[in-house]
Design a protein around this nucleic acid. Structure first.
Lengths: 240, 240
DNA sequence: CATGGCCGGATTGTGCGCAATCGACGGCGC
DNA sequence: GCGCCGTCGATTGCGCACAATCCGGCCATG
């Protein structure tokens, strides 16, 4: 689930936005840590102006919190908030899936199938070596492509940004899901079922399957979190 | 549904944000019209820097669109998009209502009741003179207070901003709803029923009622729109 | 020892100027 | 008359400096 702005965006603000966002998602900026404008400006070799813009955008997307005159920090998340976000996400993506089933055009199906295949290949690789960073990154990218394809097919101008508001913040924990045994296969299965329901233009089934898929992901993640309470503490911003 | 930042924010950026937002919602800036940074800076008596911040924030909330190096304009909406936004809103606020029914604390009910009373008073005034701008503004404010109260009671940190993403843009048309005969009473009735379901801690009923309430609003609005096709054209940015 | 006011460094908020970019207009050749 | 190209004005993108604000520590006082 990456943003619309491609990483090689020519303007500085978008470049900083992509960089900081990736830094947050991949764990280089830990939750609770401060994002000082001057520091980021030096890191990305530009002035504070585009940095400000990037940070404010991240704020409006819920990845960082800024307090007036006190600056920005990476938003810490409690287990409770993660669960809530996944519940909203389930509803939003479920709705998107039902729209996709109703509204898709033939060309969309090609894109969807390609995303499906990519995810299955990534799954195979992931089953062999799930601690290879490149493999994990490919898994996440393939997963994002599948979900993005459905958002596009829904023909709903705004739903993409709405889904991102719910999805992006918990993305920090994404990696945890891949370590749960069976989760990769489960995801692949659901992706296929969802694609089938959408292809057959069955909105209700597509919605139900998507809701269940997302809730599965929620539970896997929460299970992984409580298995690593110290990690949970870390991500909640309670530095030790 | 007004933003969290109170209008008397000491901050220039927030002041401009509030001002432009109000200008869009109240029709002073028509959809499709350009928002030139320098112009806004003069109007709000500050430099372009805070104006930029305000405009970018409005962009991320979907009220304006900006094209690179070409500036911002008030986002035009098609009837189709309005319908889609209301559908998402129904689901999101329905979810929020069910959460509110499950999670509210006793003190919340006082706030909810006050909002309810305020809306009923505003309704009475509205039935007498529905073309008085002050009365309409009070109606909108009371309505916003009711919906905001439920969002607060849902104890879901992020749902407020999600709902606003779906609600804010079509707010431009809000006024149209008040002219549909019977709509004010219908709204008041639903508000009361929703409040009752929430108070009685019945999440499913609260959700159903809220979904229906929002969809009623959608239909009223669309009916009003097609009754004024020229107005619709105007708001869609097709200037004549 | 607890408390409150004061000061200095760090960081954000804002103003302002210049360079880059885009669209419109008009001149040129055909 | 029509399409192409260069120039120009309008506007945004960005860098930079100064002002406003906040936090921590220090000191005086009770």
């Amino acid at each position: 689930m990456t943003s619309d702005s491609s990483p090689e965006s020519s303007n500085d603000a978008a470049r900083v936005y992509d960089g900081v966002r990736r830094g947050i998602v991949e764990g280089d900026f830990l939750p609770g840590s401060r994002l000082v404008e001057q520091r980021l400006a030096e890191k990305f070799e530009c002035s504070r102006t585009p940095v400000r813009e990037a940070v404010r955008r991240l704020e409006s997307e819920g990845l960082v919190v800024v307090e007036r005159n006190r600056g920005a920090r990476v938003r810490p998340l409690t287990e409770h908030e993660i669960a809530d976000l996944y519940d909203v996400r389930a509803r939003l993506e479920g709705y998107a899936a039902s729209l996709a089933a109703s509204r898709h055009e033939h060309a969309d199906l090609v894109v969807l199938r390609r995303a499906l295949d990519r995810f299955e290949r990534a799954t195979d690789a992931g089953l062999r070596s799930r601690d290879d960073r490149a493999v994990v990154r490919e898994l996440d990218a393939a997963n994002a492509e599948f979900h993005e394809a459905l958002l596009t097919m829904s023909r709903h101008t705004r739903i993409r940004s709405l889904v991102h508001s719910a999805v992006d913040a918990p993305l920090v924990f994404q990696a945890l899901q891949h370590f749960e045994p069976g989760e990769l296969e489960r995801s692949a299965t659901f992706h296929r079922l969802i694609a089938d329901a959408v292809t057959a233009r069955e909105p209700e089934r597509a919605e139900r399957l998507m809701v269940e898929h997302v809730l599965q992901g929620r539970d896997t993640l929460l299970a992984g979190l409580s298995a690593f309470d110290d990690v949970a503490d870390l991500f909640a911003g309670r530095r030790g």
